[in-house]
Design a protein around this nucleic acid. Structure first.
Lengths: 141, 141
DNA sequence: ATGATACTTGACTATTTTAGTCAGGTTTAT
DNA sequence: ATAAACCTGACTAAAATAGTCAAGTATCAT
C-alpha cells in the first residue's frame, strides 16, 4: 500500500502555491523549479485541480495559479479526490449486488477494510492546506 | 493508494484458519476452496507466514496449518510485516543523507506523510486476529 | 512399504499501474 | 506581435502486481 506520486505532488505543489498565493499568481514553472517536479506532470495535475475548483488559473504573461478557496477550507480529501488519488482497500465494493469473492456473502474481512478506509479518510478530512503551511513555517524558524 | 492482494489474502486466510484452529490443522486446500484464493498463491503467502512464526505447519495426511500464537496476540502489523505489505507513503526516507527531492532539505510535506504512516500503522497495531474473528461471529448470528 | 496428501521452493510471466514525456495547440498581458 | 503561460490528449518505458507452473520433499494412514 502506498501513495502515488500524483497525490503527493499535488499536495506539495499546493503547499508551495499557498505560501505565495496572497501576492501574485504562481506559475507552474516556478513550482516546477522549486519542488523539482516535471512541468508537464504539473500541468496534468493542475488541470484536474482547476476542474475541481481548487485553484483558478490566470492566463497571460505574469499569469499562473491562485487558490480558489482559503487554505483553511481546502482539505486533503478535496485534493486527493481532485487528482483521483483514491484510498481503496478492497475490490468488494464495486459490485453492488455480489459479495466479495463473487460469492453471495461478504468476505471475512470486509468490515475491516471498511474501518481502515474510514480511519484513513478521517485523517484526510481533518487536515487542511493551512495546517501544512503552518507546519512548514514553524519549521523554518 | 491501495492494499495489495497479498496482504488482503493473508488476513482472510488467517481469519479462516483461526476459526477452525482449535480443532485440527487446516489445509490450504480447504482455505482455498472456502475463500476462493488460488492454492499456489496461498502457498506463497503461508511460506512467509511460517517463516515469521505466525503459523506452524503440520505435514502429512490430515496436515495443514495452525496458529503459532493466540489469535489475540497476532496483530495485523505482524501479518503485514510477514508478507511484505508495507505502508509506504513516500520515498524520502530511503536515502538517509539526502532530502526528499535530491535537495538538501526535507520536502514541504515530509512531516505530513510521517504522520499519515503513523496513523495507519496505529490502526494495524491495535487490531488483532481475535478481533476479526469475533466481529465475524457476531455477524453470523 | 507405499501411496496419497500436504507442504516447499523458486522461477517465470501476463497484465496493470505508474510516472511521466511529447507534441501541438490556445489565450492573454504588454 | 510575441513571449509567457496555460491546455489537451495521446503515448510509453519501467515497475509492481497477481498470480501460474514445475518439480520437488516430508509425513501419515494403512
Amino acid at each position: 500500500m502506498k501513495l502515488t506520486s500524483k497525490g503527493r505532488y499535488a499536495v506539495m505543489a499546493l503547499v508551495d502555491l499557498a505560501r505565495f498565493d496572497n501576492i501574485n499568481p504562481v506559475s507552474l514553472r516556478d513550482i516546477s523549479l522549486r519542488q523539482g517536479i516535471s512541468l508537464d506532470f504539473l500541468e496534468q495535475i493542475f488541470s484536474k485541480l482547476r476542474k475541481n475548483e481548487i485553484v483558478q488559473s490566470v492566463r497571460g504573461t505574469q499569469g499562473g495559479y491562485i487558490l480558489n478557496k482559503k487554505a483553511k477550507e481546502i482539505k486533503l480529501t478535496n485534493i486527493f479526490d481532485a487528482v483521483d488519488e483514491k484510498v481503496k482497500t478492497v475490490q468488494c465494493k464495486k459490485e453492488s449486488k455480489k459479495g466479495c469473492n463473487g460469492k453471495s456473502t461478504k468476505c471475512l474481512t470486509h468490515n475491516l477494510w471498511d474501518e481502515l478506509e474510514n480511519h484513513i479518510n478521517n485523517f484526510f478530512k481533518e487536515k487542511s492546506l493551512e495546517d501544512l503551511v503552518k507546519d512548514n513555517n514553524e519549521r523554518r524558524i
